[in-house]
Simulated assay, not measured.
Amino acid sequence: MSQLEVAMATLIQTFDKYAGSDGKKCTLSKTEVKTLMEKELPGLLKAAKNPSEVDKLMKDLDFNGDSEVDFQEFITLVVALTCAAHNRFCKR
């Protein structure tokens, strides 16, 4: 597989790894989002000084208002973070 195909497969596997522990395999609950972020994005959580940042992030990600994060909403987070990182490196 190409690097991009591996990256896509990794995103799917990462979502699937955390989704479903609360019963729904196709969405992430607030608890699952927090666990995913603690394990997969620890630097991002450490940068957040306010402990309610996960609550705010969850609200921002939950576009359809169902109190869960589906795969499309998860990918929106990944894209936003990737764009921010890319912009940061371009400014150097």
Score class of each variant (00 low, 15 high):
39 K>Q: 11
35 T>L: 13
80 A>T: 08
87 N>A: 08
68 E>A: 00
54 V>R: 11
47 A>K: 15
23 G>Y: 13
72 Q>H: 10
41 L>V: 08
72 Q>P: 07
18 Y>R: 01
58 M>S: 07
88 R>N: 12
50 N>R: 13
53 E>D: 10
44 L>S: 06
90 C>W: 08
31 T>I: 12
21 S>F: 07
28 L>P: 15
53 E>H: 11
89 F>P: 13
62 D>T: 01
69 V>A: 02
65 G>E: 00
52 S>Q: 14
21 S>W: 01
65 G>T: 02
54 V>C: 03
19 A>Q: 06
40 E>T: 13
75 I>S: 05
67 S>H: 14
68 E>C: 02
49 K>F: 10
58 M>Q: 11
32 E>W: 10
74 F>A: 00
37 M>V: 00
22 D>N: 14
46 K>Y: 01
54 V>Y: 06
62 D>E: 08
87 N>C: 07
68 E>D: 04
45 L>W: 02
78 V>Q: 13
33 V>A: 09
77 L>W: 07
88 R>S: 12
71 F>S: 00
21 S>D: 10
62 D>S: 04
38 E>D: 11
43 G>W: 00
37 M>I: 01
88 R>A: 14
53 E>T: 08
32 E>D: 02
65 G>I: 02
53 E>Q: 03
58 M>L: 09
50 N>E: 04
24 K>C: 05
51 P>D: 09
22 D>V: 08
90 C>D: 03
62 D>V: 08
81 L>F: 12
81 L>P: 14
47 A>F: 14
78 V>C: 15
25 K>D: 00
26 C>Q: 03
70 D>G: 13
83 C>H: 03
34 K>R: 12
89 F>M: 12
60 D>R: 06
49 K>C: 08
18 Y>P: 05
84 A>D: 07
50 N>H: 05
37 M>F: 04
31 T>F: 10
71 F>P: 00
80 A>D: 03
40 E>W: 03
20 G>A: 06
36 L>K: 00
86 H>Y: 07
60 D>G: 02
48 A>T: 01
26 C>Y: 01
36 L>C: 09
51 P>V: 04
48 A>G: 14
75 I>Q: 09
59 K>E: 09
31 T>S: 15
36 L>H: 02
68 E>V: 04
46 K>N: 14
47 A>Q: 15
78 V>N: 07
58 M>R: 13
